[in-house]
Write a protein that binds this DNA or RNA. Structure first.
Length: 886
DNA sequence: GCGAATACGTA
DNA sequence: CGTACGTATTCGCT
């Protein structure tokens, strides 16, 4: 009998349980956004958490097979020979599971030449001998032989892995009618199809158990084989060698030399940071919460205050300094390390409280604008000393509203974190501190009104000042250049653009919204009439009922919830099975989508009559900006109605006009430069229509004989190339035969072979390095390139192929923006840079500045990089964005 | 109230 | 089986 104090050893067959989980959970429901399947991992971890809660083991180990070969396959090559190929969706889940287990500080054990079951057997034997209560979790029936008074087997049921049946000796007796140690004898006689071990023909479980009841053991049965009558007895005598062989193979090894001591299997606290990391990669939210709860960690706290390692330096007590003391402190520290770190509370757009810190000392300021006591702070802030911040852009804007321009070099640790690891989910100070200092940011109790000891502005500032040097040190040469010469300088430019905003006419939007709303209602009514009932046209689910059940249309591309009803699928349907409803639905979608955009823009107009977007400098892993609240980088342009939305964006009060400037075909030009393809470079140098030029080469005709159809095919392919487009994708997009698409691509590469070589090279290099690099040295890591999961890996390959191209274009645009902003300032222009849409800039032009600004902008945009092809810039002028954008 | 899934706008 | 984003909607879940 076990007692309260008896330690419990939990040993799990990792491979067998993961495999059970794989078949118990639907593959399609458990995938990360980049296509990694996770159902086996999910099922396994869920089961593990249940066991941790229910059994409270003091010691744990998970055993894995190293390969499907072991001493048993050497002895009997057909052993497990009937097992089919491992499903591709399962491959790759085991290493990730092992990573997750490592993060949970759970020991995994493998032994060369042996199976996981042997490890289980050894642990069960030595464990029970050492006084442990042992729980064996396995989906392999051979482990039944391990059961005794101290060892219980938990065996997964048919339903799933979290439903485990407990086999103690009594349960084994009840289920099989034998003692556990007799099980291998039964199995040897009956055989095991899944292991490719045929048994004695005609002997089933019933017979085997009956014989054991009579003769006690397999040996006993074989000794008395002559005494067994009938056909079964004959069969036994003929095939007794099979039973002997099976018995030899199914005997588990109980005295393996294991690489670990039992005592080292003692349960220890999970590595919270590592667990959050791997669970984030696996996109396990609920499991993370469940695990943290079982571990006694509050999942809602993004960090655990108590986990701060003792090696962390002691937090300085913040000082309250004023006037000359403050001046002295600032002067003493301004040049130390990376500079003084600054944190501030912003309330309603204004800065209210401020803290400063170095790695040694913190200062709190009850700052009031232009208060004499704080003049030294304001002088420092607006001077040219470096300022360390986190999320600097919003602080710069807040200070600006108080009339203070933060001028010095800005070292933003969030920006640093992004340059170091673009795409990393940890973007805020807490995540960064965990990664780069290995410390948890102390967190205040949200229910407490007064900030608790050790949390707040001063502590954050102290973390910042320690992070900045560590993170800068971590930058390679290229990334350092990108940070210092591109990202830091562009930051204040973005702040200015956000503050400036763009003027938008509420009246125009309102009119547009009304007419789009009317049209949507009209189209909806017509659509309802076509199908004789009212459905929610915005519900893909209800549309599926209408299209495929009611109207009996052919099935489209499958998705998770049924069949696709997106624009492409509906267009296919219209071709195959024309119906007025389809056209009406598409038009309705169009109208409601546009109206929704118009509505959200209208709501975003500030009291100053302008829309102030927020640019995400650390949003995109390629180096591009993003735009939110609202997104001004996806304002429609392709349709006539869409252009009417652009018309509502107009020159501001006191301004003369809007000016747009965009790079033409910048990504293609970068591809020409990076690949060094002579044909493509010549195309750009000659300066004529690119797609016409390329089309002439591919189709072997004169440029003047390139038809519009040829041109559009070439255009689609040229653009697609930089995204890793396949012949299949090209044929789908152009709705041409895949043989034609193939021909098109091979003709292209025939003429522009260096492009293909370059694209291949980029991926190869990325596989070697683990990251891609832009012209200016910006890096993007690609760990997925070595994934065994084909879908994951190929997705990464396309992204890697695109990253240097998209990223270099982003670098070039940012450099141009910095230089333009600089010269606009030094030339005292009153015009303003307002918007950036990846390859386009939009300006408010002050009266009389059109020509000057146009020249300045063109010069800096085309001069932002020295490529082997010219950077062509197109200007447009007009009172609204539609007319200004050619 | 939250998230996943779907759909769609831009470069 | 084409990269990079952000947003709105519906629907099923807690």
């Amino acid at each position: 009998m076990s007692n309260e104090n008896q330690p419990t050893l939990l040993v799990i067959d990792g491979h067998s349980l993961a495999f059970r989980a794989f078949y118990a959970l639907p593959v399609d429901s458990f995938q990360t956004s980049d296509g990694q399947h996770t159902n086996a991992i999910h099922g396994f971890i869920a089961m593990l958490i249940n066991l941790l809660k229910a059994e409270k083991p003091t010691h744990i180990a998970v055993a894995f097979d190293i390969s499907r070969y072991s001493f048993r396959t050497r002895e009997y090559p057909e052993y497990k020979g009937t097992r089919g190929e491992t499903p591709p969706e399962f491959i790759g889940q085991i290493p990730l599971l092992q990573e997750a287990l490592a993060a949970m500080n759970i020991t995994t054990i493998t032994v060369e030449d042996y199976e996981a079951d042997d490890i289980l057997a050894t642990l069960a034997t030595t464990g029970s001998a050492a006084g442990y209560r042992v729980l064996v979790v396995s989906g392999d029936r051979d482990t039944i032989q391990l059961v005794n008074d101290e060892v219980t087997l938990l065996y997964p049921s048919r339903q799933g892995v979290s439903d485990l049946t407990r086999y103690d000796p009594a349960k084994v007796q009840e289920r099989y009618g034998i003692r556990p140690e007799q099980y291998p004898d039964v199995a040897a006689l009956v055989g095991e199809t899944s292991d490719n071990l045929p048994g004695v023909p005609k002997v089933g479980e019933k017979t085997a158990v009956k014989w054991l009841g009579i003769y006690g053991s397999l040996d006993g049965i074989l000794e008395n084989a002559e005494a067994i009558t009938g056909k079964v007895g004959e069969s036994l005598r003929e095939h007794k060698d099979r039973a002997v062989r099976n018995r030899r193979l199914n005997r588990l090894v109980t005295d393996l030399a294991l690489p670990v001591e039992l005592s080292s299997l003692a349960r220890s606290a999970i590595d919270e940071e590592a667990v959050r990391d791997i669970f984030a990669r696996l996109q396990f939210r609920t499991l993370l919460d469940r695990l943290l709860k079982t571990e006694g960690i509050d999942p809602s706290a993004s960090q655990a205050g108590s986990a701060t390692p003792t090696s962390a330096p002691e937090r300085p007590e913040p000082q309250r300094l004023l006037d000359e003391e403050l001046r002295a402190w600032i002067e003493r520290n301004a040049a130390s390390g990376c500079g003084i770190a600054l944190t501030a509370d912003v309330v309603e757009g204004r800065v209210v409280d401020v803290a400063l810190s170095t790695a040694e000392q913190s200062v709190e300021l009850a700052w009031q604008l232009h208060g004499a006591d704080y003049a030294p702070f304001e002088e420092w802030l607006t001077g040219d000393s470096p300022v360390v911040m986190a999320g600097a852009k919003s602080l710069i804007k807040a200070f600006h509203r108080s009339g203070l321009e933060v001028a010095g070099p800005i070292i933003d640790v969030e920006l640093l974190g992004w340059v170091l690891r673009p795409g990393s989910p940890e973007k805020d100070l807490a995540g960064i501190a965990r990664r780069y200092l290995g410390e948890d940011l102390p967190v205040g109790d949200p229910n407490q009104l007064i900030a608790s000891e050790g949390s707040g502005l001063a502590v954050d500032a102290w973390f910042l000042s320690r992070l900045a040097p560590v993170m800068r040190e971590a930058l390679d040469e290229g990334s350092l250049r990108v940070f210092d010469d591109i990202e830091v300088p562009v930051l204040p430019v973005l702040a200015e653009m956000e503050l400036a905003g763009v003027a938008v006419s509420h009246d125009e939007l309102h009119t547009l919204s009304t007419s789009l709303g009317d049209r949507a209602a009209d189209l909806a009514a017509q659509a309802y009439a076509e199908i004789g009932r009212e459905v929610n046209l915005g519900s893909p689910k209800q549309l599926q009922e209408v299209l495929f059940d009611q109207l009996g249309m052919p099935k489209t591309r499958a998705n998770k919830t049924g069949y696709s009803t997106d624009a492409g699928a509906l267009a296919d349907l219209q071709a195959k099975s024309p119906h007025p409803f389809l056209g009406l639905l598409l038009q309705h979608r169009d109208a409601t989508k546009l109206r929704q955009i118009v509505e959200s823009l209208d709501k975003a107009i500030a009291p100053d009559g302008r829309i102030h977007t927020t640019y995400g400098q650390i949003g995109a892993s390629t180096g591009r900006l993003s735009s939110t609240d609202p997104n001004l980088q996806n304002i429609p342009i392709r349709s006539e109605e869409g252009r009417r939305i652009r018309s509502a964006f107009h020159a501001g009060e006191g301004m003369e006009t809007l000016l747009t400037a965009d790079y033409s075909q910048i990504e293609m030009r970068i591809m020409a430069h990076l690949s060094g393809d002579p044909g493509l470079i010549q195309a750009f140098k000659e300066g004529e229509d690119l797609h016409r030029f390329v089309g002439a080469r591919i189709f072997g005709v004169d440029p003047s004989d390139v038809t519009p159809e040829m041109r559009s095919k070439v255009k689609a392919m040229s653009y697609g190339l930089a995204y890793g487009l396949s012949a299949f994708g090209l044929s789908k997009q152009l709705r041409i035969e895949s043989s034609e698409a193939k021909k098109l691509m091979s003709d292209y590469f025939e003429r522009f072979g260096a492009v293909r070589d370059y694209l291949r090279h980029v991926v190869e290099q990325a596989k070697t390095d683990g990251y891609t690099t832009t012209i200016f040295g910006r890096r993007r890591p690609f760990p997925e390139l070595s994934s065994p999961n084909r879908v994951v890996r190929e997705n990464a390959e396309r992204a890697a192929l695109n990253a240097p191209i998209q990223g270099s274009a982003a670098d070039i645009m940012k450099i141009a923006m910095v230089r333009i902003a600089d010269e606009m300032r030094t030339s005292d222009l009153r015009s303003r840079m307002l918007l950036q849409v990846h390859d386009e800039l939009v300006f408010d032009v002050a009266p009389g500045e059109t020509d000057t600004l146009g020249e300045l902008v063109t010069r800096h945009m085309s001069g932002a990089a020295e490529l082997s092809v010219p950077l062509d810039v197109q200007l447009g002028v007009g009172t609204d964005w539609n007319t200004a954008g050619h």
